[in-house]
């Protein structure tokens, strides 16, 4: 938090200025010029670095939020053709979204998939993370690598591989392939997050519990689980967000009838985009904000609970 690189220890710069002018003798004119300019730049950064940094942060946050404000604003636009600024404001598109059975079905499917895929993915992650951190076995690193691999192989590659797989084994229904695909995508995040806390967790507590007669399951439930619960909650929230927004896997494994909200929007964008898409974007934004609020609320509750 403190102002270190651009700090107020003037000694450094002053000292350098001295060396700069002194060594000019054997560096020639060009060398002296170069050093002077260098010193000037150092001085400039020293004096104004803090403001430069703050400007960059401000500009980037504006850059990140401007498109979201534009969309939210345009969801109230009257005209069907996209124009900015909108000539008059209306909530018609929200009403048309609520009355559109296809959009609502896509929203329902998205939530159903997320509600099944997230706990499944986090449960598998927990089993993997626990085994990897508490047992020494052959293939441990291989397992860890395979569990992390969906993060590294481009989504489209796994997406088309799954298309071929589900076609090959002849699974036609769109819903369960989508759920399993989402689960695959949640596992690496879940494993990494939970593994990090399991590794840093003091295992002597577990040993103590076992010495006192508890078996491994009881130990896990009463000692380990409470300690790693925050990371499980964090992983669950992240998993839900991943599943709710997932597009590429879904796009490749779904059948024609199944649509999640992202694939529904993709379809709309292939034809003519109406402000209804803006309304859906507001839905996505609200879900994102909700998740952050839930995350903050849970951590606060936890902090209060610990204090008591």
């Amino acid at each position: 938090m403190s102002d270190r690189d651009g700090g107020h220890t003037d000694g450094g710069v002053a000292k350098q200025r001295e060396t700069g002018s002194r060594s000019g003798g054997f560096g020639g004119l060009a060398g002296r010029l170069f050093r002077t300019v260098g010193t000037q730049v150092e001085l400039f950064v020293h004096n104004y670095g803090r403001y430069l940094g703050k400007t960059i942060v401000g500009a980037i946050i504006l850059f990140l939020w401007a498109p979201i404000f534009v969309l939210s604003f345009m969801s109230f636009s009257q005209r069907e053709v996209l124009s900015f600024p909108p000539e008059s404001l209306t909530v018609d598109w929200y009403i048309s979204f609520i009355n559109n059975p296809q959009a609502l079905e896509a929203l329902t499917t998205t939530i159903q998939v997320a509600v099944i895929a997230t706990p499944l993915g986090i449960f598998l992650s927990l089993l993997i993370a626990y085994s990897v951190s508490r047992y020494d076995f052959r293939g441990r690193f291989l397992l860890q690598a395979v569990a992390t691999l969906p993060l590294i192989i481009p989504l489209i590659v796994v997406g088309v591989a799954m298309t071929m797989f589900f076609g090959f084994v002849g699974i036609q229904s769109g819903f369960w392939p989508v759920v399993f695909a989402h689960t695959v995508q949640i596992v690496p995040f879940g494993t990494l997050i939970i593994l990090a806390t399991l590794i840093s967790f003091d295992t002597t507590l577990e040993e103590a519990s076992m010495d006192l007669g508890a078996n491994e399951f009881e130990t896990f439930r009463q000692v380990t689980l409470p300690a790693i619960l925050p990371s499980i909650i964090a992983a669950t929230l992240l998993g839900f967000v991943i599943s709710f927004n997932e597009f590429i896997y879904t796009y490749f494994v779904k059948d024609a009838r199944t649509n999640t909200l992202p694939t529904y929007i993709w379809d709309r964008l292939q034809h003519t985009a109406t402000p209804e898409v803006n309304v859906i974007s507001v839905v996505f934004l609200l879900v994102a904000i909700m998740m952050v609020v839930v995350a903050v609320a849970i951590t606060t509750v936890e902090r209060v609970a610990i204090r008591q």
């Binding site: 946050i61 498109p67 969309l71 967000v241 927004n245 985009a273």
Partner: peptide
């Protein structure tokens, strides 16, 4: 504030840039 936009949908964000 930096991460929140990342949690909204990818396609939606691209669509916003199409508009812009």
């Amino acid at each position: 504030l930096v991460i929140l936009p990342f949690w909204t949908n990818y396609i939606i964000r691209m669509y916003a840039w199409m508009n812009i």
